[in-house]
Nucleic acid binder design. Structure first.
Lengths: 341, 341
DNA sequence: CTGAAAGCGCTTACAG
DNA sequence: CTGAAAGCGCTTACAG
């Protein structure tokens, strides 16, 4: 039979309370006693029953999700997924709070993170902005012992515990590879629409994309990046303007959000004249555009996976447990019109 | 506070034992009593604490995984994932048994499934073969109340509870789309290597592939399917022979396993003369071939996901709990050399 | 048909 | 520094 705390207590000749103290690294145990208990633990091959422990503790996890209030389907969908997770809060023993911040605003994000310190939750997840202030604030959270997970966009070297999102360099490289191969070695001009170079995910996608185009598809010319702030209206304007200035655009890589605007602009182009388009994030609008031939490929990250993964990781960190790396890797989904789910 | 069985007992004026009987649908409760308790349950908005219930029950789940003993990396990897899950059996309260059967052998699979009935486990997962006998046997398991999950290859209309695998028609369609676009509208001859038309996953991939080629890329001619039984040696022979007979082969779709043989055959072709190759399953050998340019794209299913999903679903079915469909959908991963994980 | 009591594996005041 | 006892939310014999 699986050994329990009782077995350890008996084998070490101590009480349950003492076993518990050793198990949880609490103070107030003489070194010799501690060693006896630790000996019994390894001798018996004890593994703690986390469910029973949580039951006894009446443990609940308070998590704060800080999300940018963008007006785009991806961020709206992300927030929806967090709310879906909130609906499961009773069986999962979580208590989740959503904090809204203005998008692409480092100061606002820093303020939101700082506010978290007032009443420290069991963990914090946030969409990172890559700035020194945010980095420093994240380090303060880490110093305060609050587990942190970056969501969608990472900020390395900040002391954050985990990143729940895709490898954006690989995503950009993949987009370039598809673009180059779909264009079939013909010289072409390609436009790139981003949200903001302030966020790392967009910068990395651009970097991956540019690298592969340069190395493997030198016949392709990339126009200067358009920054649409993931705002559909602004994106539409920028794309329309770019098409006016460069009617010969043969390909388009939309590496941020705000694709509703892009799609509206594409719809004005004659069928047959349309550029090859690769976009990110499968939403109602990109799905329709993919099915209808306005978009040729969509790279996607599953917001539901990211949220569930963030919660699992925050729980594990809060309990000092290891995370199952293979399970938590968020993959880049590639959708063509033929494998739409 | 979250209501517990105590609250229900008090509110309904009955004992804990009676509450438990109603909660678990056990007999021996008068109709009026039952109704009182049910009233209290909905009035208080009670949700059962599954972890506490499992603790009290000392519940463990016995699962049987029936896996074909193919000599190919994918099936070996699948078995490895099951063994990895076995290592987590203590915290997850599972007891997993692996049963090996000869590949592509309906009779052997039926025998293995029948053997399961002797000492019925909490659930069974198996790689299905699409034959009437297997279908009938699966229905018998269902009739016996044993939850069943098909793994990798499905067998619909058999009474199985769930399928843990990708949408293979969509996978075939995707392969065709990539093949057609990568070939760039040039007339071409394409060879298809399958394992066996006995398994539904291979049939469906072929169907999806053929459909899209026919509808969207009429310039492509598909040669008669080669059946390599997912055996590297046989696959190598068949491919070598096909290349000898049709030196002009421009593309190859390997929709089964046994890619080690395919790759050996490809390596003998001059660089520059090599066909465009799309294969299934990311293994050590396909990964190397992808990185080295012998293979152009790999469609993959994550065996680890499938195994973990099968276990989650079997648990839920054993407990009569609903499954989170979005979480259990297994996706088609598309790998190019630029997004290798 | 119904209930009182003990127990699952762990933790938590409280007492010493 | 250490332990006896009660309790987390549920289930299970056993008695009536």
């Amino acid at each position: 039979m699986k050994p329990t705390v009782h077995d350890i207590a008996r084998s070490a000749g101590v009480s349950l309370a003492t076993v518990d103290r050793v198990l949880n690294g609490r103070p107030g145990v003489r070194r010799v006693t501690r060693q006896k208990v630790e000996g019994a633990i390894v001798a018996l091959g004890y593994v703690r029953d986390v469910a029973a422990a949580n039951l006894a503790k009446g443990r609940t996890y308070g998590f704060t999700f800080i999300l940018p209030g963008n007006d785009n389907s991806f961020m709206i969908g992300l927030a929806d997924e967090v709310r879906t997770a909130m609906a499961r809060s009773i069986p999962e023993r979580t208590h989740i709070r959503i904090v809204d911040v203005p998008p692409f605003d480092p100061a606002a994000l820093v303020a939101a993170l700082e506010a978290v310190l007032e009443a420290p939750p069991s963990g914090v997840a946030f969409v990172a902005i890559d700035s020194p202030e945010v980095r420093a604030m994240t380090a303060r959270l880490a110093a305060a012992g609050i587990p942190t997970v970056t969501l969608v966009s990472d900020i390395p070297d900040s002391g954050r515990d985990h990143y729940a999102g895709i490898d954006n360099i690989a995503a950009g490289r993949t987009a370039a590879s598809l673009m180059g191969r779909f264009l079939g070695r013909r010289p072409a001009t390609v436009a790139v629409l981003a949200g903001s170079m302030l966020v790392r995910d967009h910068r990395e996608r651009l970097e991956g994309f540019s690298t592969v185009i340069r190395e493997a598809f030198p016949e392709i010319v990339i126009l200067p990046v358009l920054e649409g702030r993931d705002d559909p209206a602004l994106a539409e304007m920028l794309i329309a303007e770019a098409l006016r200035q460069n009617p010969q655009i043969g390909g388009m890589y939309s590496l941020g959000a705000g694709n509703r605007g892009l799609i509206r602009a594409l719809a004005t182009i004659e069928r047959g004249e349309r550029p090859l388009v690769i976009a990110h994030e499968l939403t109602t609008s990109t799905r329709t555009a993919l099915a209808g031939g306005l978009i040729d490929a969509v790279l996607n990250q599953d917001a539901g996976h990211e949220v569930r993964s963030a919660i699992r990781v925050l729980k594990a960190k809060a309990d000092g447990l290891p995370v199952l790396a293979a399970q938590e890797r968020i993959r880049i989904d590639i959708f063509l019109k033929d494998n739409l789910p």
